[in-house]
Simulated assay, not measured.
Amino acid sequence: MSSAEVEISRTKAWLMAARPQTLPAAAAPVIVGTGLAVHEGVFAPLPAVMAFVGAALIQIGTNFANDYYDAVKGADTDDREGFTRVTQSGLISPEQVKLATLVTFALAILTGTYLVYVGGVPILVVGLVSVFCGWAYTGGPYPLGYHGLGDLFVFVFFGLIAVTGTYYVQAAAVLAEPLSTTIPAGTVTREAIAASLPVAGLSTAILVVNNVRDKETDAEAGKRTLAVRLGYRASRLEFTALFALAYVVPLWFWLGADFGLGVLLPLVTLPYAAMIARTIWTRTDGEALNPALEQTGKLLAVYALCFAGGLVVL
């Protein structure tokens, strides 16, 4: 094999470990938070860009940590129906994946220094807790994903905190002095919190699909995800509730918060959501759920663009 072929194969292996198909979960909160910031007149481009870079690094670092710890703890086996894991398959050594995890989280912290300057102590606390929980999702003495807390982690950090935090750093850049020690007035609003709920719901739904697919192998490995604890029916009900949340929130913005008709634009994705839900309710195999996993990520991305666009236009 030539050196070029080796390099290409290693590049592909690192892309597999980074799981770029999960990046909609990092981009969607920034898109929605920025759309709301534009609507409210507090848009600040540099904080928005840095918020995305930080979120993407935390997402990738979490993916690296998940790949590494699932392999060394025996949760990833040859029987698993999901996408190839580079540590378990031997494509990249465990030591290299672990180092990549540490470097990626360190870069996330470095990126966050600018956001701390803009947003002050609240962003420092949120950023450090986010990085810690990204590692603790599968690492540490009490890995969140192994004890049924993964869904809550994603809902809070890739939904509530990510959207509200994106709005916060932009509003703080416009309305407050740098290095604030408290939360400045007007930087955390009920609209920002409400706007975070659809992103939280759809991001968590991605994890539900993943865990429904892996339910049997996770149970055998002792990985007590929420799907393992609840079973197929309750997990499907959770999935449906998360989707329902995403489509109720725009109605609240229109009827309860006096926003224009543009906020209803995400409803155009309902047929696509219904197609995905049908798969989740009828299948458990990787042949069906691997595409459903990617489709849910695409739904999150399109929904976020529609929601943000509706906020900006009307």
Rank of each mutant, 00 (worst) to 15 (best):
residue 258 D to T: 09
residue 259 F to V: 08
residue 221 A to K: 03
residue 229 R to M: 15
residue 227 A to I: 08
residue 255 L to M: 12
residue 248 V to I: 15
residue 228 V to C: 08
residue 223 K to F: 00
residue 235 S to T: 10
residue 255 L to S: 11
residue 217 T to W: 03
residue 235 S to D: 06
residue 221 A to H: 02
residue 219 A to S: 12
residue 248 V to D: 10
residue 227 A to S: 15
residue 246 A to Q: 00
residue 223 K to A: 00
residue 227 A to K: 04
residue 222 G to Q: 02
residue 251 L to M: 09
residue 259 F to Q: 13
residue 244 A to T: 14
residue 254 W to Y: 15
residue 237 L to Y: 10
residue 232 Y to G: 11
residue 259 F to W: 15
residue 241 A to T: 07
residue 232 Y to E: 11
residue 245 L to T: 14
residue 225 T to P: 00
residue 226 L to V: 06
residue 252 W to K: 02
residue 239 F to L: 05
residue 236 R to M: 08
residue 235 S to Y: 04
residue 239 F to D: 02
residue 245 L to C: 12
residue 261 L to R: 15
residue 255 L to F: 14
residue 227 A to Y: 04
residue 241 A to R: 06
residue 239 F to Q: 02
residue 262 G to S: 09
residue 256 G to Y: 11
residue 234 A to R: 05
residue 257 A to H: 15
residue 221 A to L: 06
residue 262 G to E: 03
residue 234 A to S: 07
residue 225 T to E: 00
residue 243 F to A: 11
residue 246 A to S: 07
residue 251 L to Q: 03
residue 221 A to Y: 02
residue 221 A to F: 04
residue 221 A to E: 03
residue 244 A to S: 13
residue 243 F to H: 09
residue 234 A to D: 07
residue 219 A to Y: 09
residue 233 R to S: 12
residue 254 W to F: 15
residue 233 R to V: 15
residue 238 E to I: 14
residue 223 K to I: 01
residue 224 R to S: 02
residue 250 P to K: 01
residue 225 T to D: 01
residue 247 Y to T: 01
residue 253 F to E: 02
residue 256 G to A: 13
residue 238 E to T: 12
residue 234 A to Y: 07
residue 226 L to W: 07
residue 256 G to K: 09
residue 249 V to I: 13
residue 257 A to I: 06
residue 230 L to V: 13
residue 243 F to P: 05
residue 257 A to D: 06
residue 251 L to G: 04
residue 223 K to T: 00
residue 223 K to W: 00
residue 226 L to C: 08
residue 248 V to R: 01
residue 254 W to A: 13
residue 234 A to P: 03
residue 255 L to H: 10
residue 247 Y to C: 02
residue 240 T to R: 11
residue 231 G to N: 07
residue 261 L to Q: 12
residue 253 F to G: 03
residue 225 T to F: 00
residue 257 A to E: 10
residue 252 W to N: 06
residue 233 R to Q: 12
residue 222 G to F: 01
residue 252 W to Y: 15
residue 227 A to C: 12
residue 249 V to L: 05
residue 257 A to F: 13
residue 225 T to H: 01
residue 219 A to M: 08
residue 231 G to V: 13
residue 247 Y to P: 01
residue 240 T to Y: 10
residue 260 G to K: 12
residue 260 G to H: 14
residue 223 K to L: 00
residue 253 F to C: 08
residue 222 G to W: 01
residue 241 A to W: 06
residue 230 L to N: 09
residue 224 R to Y: 02
residue 218 D to C: 04
residue 246 A to V: 10
residue 250 P to C: 01
residue 244 A to E: 13
residue 250 P to I: 01
residue 242 L to S: 02
residue 244 A to V: 15
residue 225 T to Q: 03
residue 217 T to C: 03
residue 217 T to S: 06
residue 255 L to N: 09
residue 225 T to R: 03
residue 247 Y to L: 03
residue 224 R to W: 03
residue 225 T to I: 04
residue 238 E to Y: 08
residue 237 L to S: 07
residue 219 A to N: 09
residue 260 G to N: 13
residue 217 T to I: 04
residue 260 G to P: 04
